[in-house]
Write a protein that binds this DNA or RNA. Sequence first.
DNA 1: ATGTAC
Length: 475
Amino acid sequence: MDIRLVAEGPWRFRIERTGAMRVPGVVLAPRELLPDEPGDEALAQVAHVATLPGIVRASYAMPDIHWGYGFPIGGVAATDVGRGGVVSPGGVGFDISCGVRLLTAHVDRAALLRKLPVLMDRLDGLIPRGLGRGGLWHLAGRAQLHEILRGGARYAVEQGHGVPRDLDRCEDGGAVGDADTTWIGERALERGAGQVGSLGSANHFLEVQAVDAVYDEACARAFGLRPGLVCVMIHCGSRGLGHQICADHVRAMDSVMRRYGIDVPDPQLACAPVDSPEGRAYLGAMAAAANFARANRQLLADAARGVFRETTGTGLDLLYDVSHNLAKLERHADDGAARPLLCVHRKGATRALPPGHPGLPDGLRPFGQPVFVPGTMGTASYVMTGTIGNRAFDSCCHGAGRVWSRHRAHREMPAHRLRQELAGTGVAVRPVSWRSVTEEAPEAYKDVDAVVRASEHNDLGRLVARLVPLGVLKG
DNA sequence: ATGTAC
């Protein structure tokens, strides 16, 4: 598909509506953040998404956009459920409800520094990570897995893995309501059963960080952040379970799309009307995988809490837990007076509720929803907050965004050089293997500072604080 | 992202 990219000022581009596109593309990034590898298809993917039945307003790309399966990563698309709008598993991604949670410690960087090596050693020995491997929670049986799929972090807390206050600080109170395990295959259940409480690999991590800068003091105070404070950031998702569910439902939709008269420019955009048996089946299974991911992050946070208590005698408070790979049924104002029900796909895009939104807990509502933007290994991460002017269906960026393919990263970054470079930063990196993390080298990613700046210029979110890593656990 | 693939 030919693309006509038009600059709309220094911070954004429009992809003109042509051919089968139903709406334009809107790329919320300055030129230096646009994909520029020869043959990169990320912008074509923005245009492909614009052809989906029922799509409204525009096919959006966040500043961290890069190539993905069907949809770009950093893509946002909303379809009108009442007008034949579709749901597409490729618009959520393989790692269903992958997301980030941030916990604030009761200790400052200076006070922790002496104990950091032993803290990292304990976490290193405790947290399961890497491909395959086990999970922290040894389930009593298949019935308990179903409880997790229905109850998410809420069930984990009920079982003693956390405190009730945690749930107040989770998106959806820790559990999505409409999970339906009927539409999860045996293989997906099998893969998930041993992985509750595990990080996984690639860009997933658990980091001990410190607040390095505060940009909005009132908001930071409400979030419990101040300069020098230690935090724990956890980035992971639904592991093999979500992956298998995505694969299964892509296949199912691929075989029925024609029956619904749907034609897409890329088979990876397999989809079905939200209001169809296949659409409902995917959304039910997706919600169950989302609950799995929230329980997963809850278990990891609770384990980190135990390690902090043992080594420092201090606690960890959950600031917030939010997904950046999910489709949700939401009402948004259209250009008239109506608020139609939309299926909002966010793939590598963080939901970012504005100040005053009823979906926020009392303590956060005046300030907006915390948005977490993890950088790459050894670099800064950011905390942002939702804004009222967000036109991308209350969505923001989700990270630095890849610029090198995983293959190219392996080619250009030998393990020994990465190890040497990170040693120079003073960050205690504990990977399962150095070879496995070469594709996560900082050079393989965009500049996260530029990504958050572009997000702010495009009214996707506002900067609240900058966090720097002290210790990193990787897959 | 993922027991990198039926």
